[in-house]
Design a protein around this nucleic acid. Structure first.
Lengths: 334, 334
DNA sequence: GCCAACGTCTGCAACGATGTATGGCAGGAA
DNA sequence: TTCCTGCCATACATCGTTGCAGACGTTGGC
């Protein structure tokens, strides 16, 4: 079978515990002893049994990441970055897809998934702050990218409202007055959709442009819905000179539908999105959007979570971190 | 602290082992006893400790997935599907990004990552069959989507060559004669690039069109490389009437560069890709490509791996599974 | 010359589950 | 009655680690 610490101990002529001490960088070990142990480890090809270590120590060195769907480009890019950031600090990331189903979200908070991880990065789409706080337990949890702002909960997010306002202001500055918004979630109590829509309204207000509910199309954030929403607006003969997709895939879906219908982008209708996924730069025309500081979000959320886990960060107060954003002006809305 | 089996046993007035037996569906338990135990479990809110179970049983009920980069749309979509397929069978998936670095690939095969998982789904990009077979160990491993065909190794893949040939034939049938290929990996001994390129050459040959090495642009499979490759060809005044991106993001990057330079797609140059990522349908123009049967690949690779793990599949012979493909003819190459 | 302090190492008892062996008890056959 | 068989439950050892308490020898202060 596999080599155990006992084998190493025997080979090095020391006790089991001394091997453990060497592995855990215990301070008081004679260099000679340490070397003997290390040599034995190398010779036998010993590798620590992570399961046993976890059972004994109660730590798994895994972080949980709960998001709705890994195949959404924004989440895929975020997950990739989070995993790299975690890896640099000696942690792994275990991903759970909730499909925006409340039951799955709750399960991730308290079920086996929680057990397997030392802490959670959580993108709640359905459940609310109280539901989360009630199930917090002893393990740290950092909310990611959504709008729950609760004094009990750590949060790393983006400037949803501010960025959406800046983007809308840019469209207004380009002379657009009837800006359709795609992807609103009117029924949803939590989520970025509301914040981004608020930013949009605020920018309109500041420009003295009246808000027109007819221009707001609610739908889930998928490409095909973006296309369908534009189709719906046009079929109902709603007039618009710009489309603000509340995220990039919506905007790209919308743009596709516009081009199919012979609407020129940006001449007839400007299109803008939110997220700055890799694809936005290479769309045709390339997509004007907001870069929400994903690298910063990944780095800081992993950093915060691990600090909490390792007890470096005082737990008295929840941290609320907002990454900076950048407007990316491209061809679709110059 | 957490509720343990011992607490449940005490509450139900039975022994520890009886609780374990109930949990593991042991046959001979009196219904009354079973009920007492189940009631105690429900009342105390007991949840099995997965770490302890793993230590004792040697199983983690986690599958490892090794791929180069989760932010690549094809891998993101594949990972999402694999995770769902695994979840349906009671397994989780732990993802490891290799960044196509050989050392990371080797580590995933034998290091701690292997320990944490009961079996591996592995997309080798750098290391070869011998390196894998040497490190096989006792845990099952299924190769995914790449071209290593080794009698010792299970493999679930797509019809790379056949599909590439069909796609090329479609371009030829459309009257294209100078079909540029983007994303070849001349130095690489393993990988889909070679197979797809072969398919392309075979189709040319069958159509009696001479192969022109000048039309083959080697590069890594990233969007920006697709764009750069087209720029390179045009700057060198290489003439072509079609572009075959060896995967979709290359094709999309290429298409973007063409459109920027005022080349009309498909009138002047047809563009085709490979993978049928979600984005392909919504690009403008929409992308002609090959759908490699991802759902089938996900379902069958997970099925095979779990069968191996649970000993249902005779280990004598390696399985070689090829999913069917479909040509998706869209606007970019009608 | 004694005791305390220090540095180094060890033994034992967990962590929470499962496998093996075995112990009772009931009912039927001998 | 006695033995066997089938069902149900238990005790004990075990998986491979780490935490805790302490042992041992050396050193240094007084």
């Amino acid at each position: 079978m596999a080599v155990t610490m006992n084998d190493v101990a025997r080979a090095a002529g020391v006790s089991l515990k001394t091997v453990s001490n060497v592995l855990n960088d215990y301070e008081f070990i004679r260099p000679a002893t340490k070397k003997r142990v290390q040599d034995a480890i190398a010779e036998l090809g010993y590798e620590a049994n992570l399961t046993a270590r976890s059972l004994r120590s109660g730590k798994t060195r895994m972080l949980g990441l709960v998001l709705s769907d890994l195949s959404a480009p924004y989440y895929a890019e975020l997950a990739s970055r989070l995993m790299k950031a975690a890896s640099r600090r000696g942690y792994r990331v275990l991903v759970e897809q909730s499909d925006a189903v409340g039951g799955v979200e709750l399960n991730a908070l308290q079920g086996p998934f929680r057990q397997l991880t030392d802490g959670l990065l959580f993108t709640p789409l359905v459940i609310d702050a109280d539901a989360i706080a009630d199930r917090l337990g002893r393990k740290p949890l950092v909310l990611l990218g959504e709008h729950i702002l609760d004094p009990r909960l750590d949060l790393v997010t983006m400037k949803n409202g501010e960025a959406a306002a800046a983007l809308t202001a840019h469209l207004l500055a380009g002379g657009r007055r009837r800006i359709a918004v795609i992807g609103a979630h009117p029924e949803e109590s939590v989520g970025s959709a509301g914040l981004r829509l608020n930013g949009y309204r605020k920018a309109l207000e500041e420009a003295g442009v009246p808000f027109n509910p007819e221009l707001v199309a609610p739908c889930e954030w998928r490409r095909d819905n973006g296309a369908a929403a534009v189709a719906g607006l046009m079929d109902r003969s709603v007039e618009f000179d710009a489309v603000f997709g509340l995220n990039d895939v919506l905007a790209l879906g919308a743009m596709h539908e516009l081009l199919i219908r012979g609407v020129r982008v940006p001449q007839d209708v400007a299109v803008a999105g939110f997220d700055d996924i890799d694809e936005a730069r290479f769309a045709s025309p390339s997509l004007t959007t907001v870069s929400p500081g994903m690298e910063e979000i990944a780095e800081r959320s992993i950093g915060l979570l691990i600090d909490r886990i390792e007890g470096r960060e005082a737990a008295e107060q929840a941290a609320h971190i907002e990454a900076g954003f950048q407007l990316k002006v491209r061809e679709s809305a110059p």
